[in-house]
Amino acid sequence: MKVNLDRDRCYGLGQCVLAAPDVFDQDDDGIGRLLVEEPRPEQHDEVRQAALACPRQAIGVAD
């Protein structure tokens, strides 16, 4: 799985950080930061949850 995060779309809500705290973080303005581009298989489910929860649809997931 490959994850990408569109920081220009991101509004800094942090839904992704709640869903997948080991994959996403926020900078000082709240804007999302990707910690891992290729998450481990056991993280795939929470990454999909993060993509679903993102209110800006800023997270792309390619299997």
């Binding site: 800094g12 942090g14 709640l18 705290p21 973080d25 926020q26 000082d28 303005d29 709240g30 804007i31």
Partner: peptide, 15 residues
């Protein structure tokens, strides 16, 4: 909206 909103989101991060 985005301009002002970012000033608040930095104060309200998950961290």
């Amino acid at each position: 909206h985005r301009y002002y909103r970012r000033m608040l989101t930095g104060e309200l991060t998950v961290k």
